[in-house]
């Protein structure tokens, strides 16, 4: 539990992946982020592909930071929470901008967590924090592996603590983690004021 207060100094970006049961978890997590949280937060939540998502609007009500849906080549903004849009993968293009793609779904999902985590790892390597939450898919496992391989930090929600344990359990088995935490502990670590 050391270095917790250094979150904003240690990381250039935070990526979060969630699927089944992840909406509630994200609501809790985003609600603890302080208004001066000066790190870009990028989120993939598995969504139905054929209709617009109201998730950013919905979760924006609980978050002190602006919550938006990504546009292609949008600048990476510190202190903004950006969601992958339905039917697009969200990628980190470089240190300053995002990109979208309509490449084939990963494990039946578009957006998928693996492409976000892997692209962020390629750009930020050690200065990336990845958080994997509840889900019933194996998406995220390759992404967590890529993040850790590049020297980044991965926190995984403790499977017994998750509404759907498959996704965190799968990532743990495949790639391990730098910390296995309850949602409450993840929130506590993120909520530390500057």
């Amino acid at each position: 539990m050391t270095a917790v207060t250094d979150l904003r100094r240690d990381f250039d970006a935070i990526v979060i992946g969630a699927s089944a049961g992840g909406l509630r978890a994200l609501q809790e997590l985003l609600s603890v982020l302080p208004a001066d949280f000066a790190v870009p937060v990028l989120v993939v939540l598995h969504l139905p592909r054929d209709r617009p998502s109201r998730v950013p609007e919905l979760l924006g009500q609980y978050c002190a930071l602006p919550v938006r849906e990504a546009l292609d080549k949008q600048p990476l903004e510190p202190g903004a929470v950006v969601f992958a849009p339905p039917d697009y993968h969200l990628l980190v293009e470089d240190e300053t901008s995002l990109a979208l793609s309509v490449d084939e779904p990963v494990l039946f999902s578009r957006p998928a967590i693996d492409p976000l985590f892997a692209s962020a790892a390629a750009v930020f390597s050690r200065r990336l924090l990845a958080i994997l939450l509840s889900g019933a898919s194996a998406d995220g496992s390759e992404g967590v592996a890529a993040v850790r391989h590049a020297g980044g930090i991965a926190w995984i929600q403790r499977p017994e603590d998750a509404a759907a344990p498959v996704m965190p359990a799968s990532a743990l088995a495949h790639a391990g983690a730098d910390a296995v935490l309850s949602l409450q502990d993840i929130c506590n670590r993120l909520a530390v004021p500057s």
Binding site: L91, E93, A99, S101, D103, P115, S119, A122, V123
Partner: peptide, 9 residues
């Protein structure tokens, strides 16, 4: 071309 998707492809 955008490198993020090129890497993957």
């Amino acid at each position: 071309y955008a490198v993020s998707s090129l890497r993957r492809r």
